[in-house]
Design a protein around this nucleic acid. Structure first.
Lengths: 218, 218
DNA sequence: TTAATGTATATTGTATCCAATTTTAAGGTC
DNA sequence: GACCTTAAAATTGGATACAATATACATTAA
């Protein structure tokens, strides 16, 4: 067998595939806030019945990515700047602690992966990749903490603010600053300075929140 | 309009009713860890088809209350003591900040409700009520913070450890101590001492975690 | 004209049926 | 009796069909 194969039946159900596709479209901003999601349309687009579509929509709703009303249907969830700010605060509370716990556990492998994210981040010219790399950078470092529950919760939080994050990276100095701060964080991790990594992470998050708020107000 | 009316459209769908019922059974410990949940059985019990049952199970899975495998079905999710401990740490991180933000916003109404929870908590002899009152106590205070997202995330976290919490309240001095600490927290809130309320809350959570861990090890 | 009401259409919620897969048990071979 | 094969039962995933509800539009009466 020369083909790189894997057991499809274990991986994707229709529900999962639909969920992933819609989730991706929402967090990249492809589907805008308030956009209605009709079960029938989606079912046709994926060539399935409405049943798996409904289940995908249910999962999306649990993630806070859509809101749905009985007999009225689902729309892409809106997120006011205030709500987004609350989620930034949430991150600012959690992530410093997570990285603090992670630093002593970081293998050279992890540090190298994180560094390579920084590299790619600096080189990438496609703004879409920035969002992806940004998330990969953080989750790579956090994964070393072994705090599965925290990671899970944080991932959901990131999903919700992802459109805002991508917008923030597109601001005049957003991408440059993020890149600079990421490198400083890796530096602290590599030096084993857990507290410093935590501080930098906190500032990184609050800085992003602040620059976003400021931009949105003018 | 002389008729006492209310919006019946807001009333629950079958999916929601089933979700609530099973969730309740899980968090009270009525359904034990590992208990299998057969769609057909549940459907018969509620006199509905399997469709709403499946959707209820999906929601439960998103909440982490059950785990399900393709073609194998769902079982009540297990939670090791380590995992429960991680959720306690999660709470210990969030709740002090939430209550700190809440204290300046607490109306006399809120404080009175919280105090009445303490009263009822002290009087109740049914161990089942302790868990409910404990949650109502905390969420009443936190609600004043206006931090909707934090509340939502915390609620889900509480769902997961609820069986452990109830077990902890049943320990020799669990209920007494919880009651004592609750009253101290209300006191601090009433006095407007946000930092003290935060500290007490943190200790309250870590104390519960610690007494639980100690008990489980022997 | 306008507000209230009836009707048609669109959309979601649920039931019933079939397909895919796993589990169980029976039978045969050593 | 242990072990493999195989057929049947049990169970979940998905498709189709129908019921319940909402929305939009036409109709009618004041």
């Amino acid at each position: 067998m020369k083909i790189q194969a894997y057991d499809i039946s274990k991986t994707a159900s229709a529900t999962t595939l639909i969920f992933d596709a819609i989730r991706q479209a929402i967090i990249t901003g492809d589907l805008a806030q308030g956009e209605p999601l009709r079960q029938e349309d989606i079912a046709r687009a994926f060539n399935v019945s409405r049943i798996p579509v409904r289940e995908a929509l249910l999962k999306l709703e649990q993630h806070g990515l859509i809101t749905s009303q009985r007999y009225k249907g689902a729309v892409v969830a809106g997120l006011s700047l205030d709500e987004a700010s609350e989620i930034f605060e949430f991150r600012a509370l959690l992530e410093p602690e997570v990285i603090r716990r992670a630093v002593p556990q970081m293998s050279p492998q992890v540090l190298e992966t994180a560094a390579s994210c920084c590299e790619a981040f600096g080189r990438a010219d496609d703004p879409m990749q920035w969002g992806d790399l940004n998330r990969r950078f953080h989750s790579t470092l956090y994964a070393a903490s072994g705090l599965g529950y925290h990671m899970e919760v944080l991932d959901k939080a990131m999903d919700r603010i992802d459109p805002y994050l991508r917008a923030q990276l597109l601001l005049s100095d957003g991408m440059q600053r993020a890149n600079r701060e990421h490198r400083m964080i890796v530096e602290a991790c590599r030096a084993g300075q857990a507290d410093r990594a935590a501080d930098l992470t906190r500032q990184h998050i609050l800085g992003a929140q602040e620059s976003l708020s400021r931009y949105w107000q003018k």
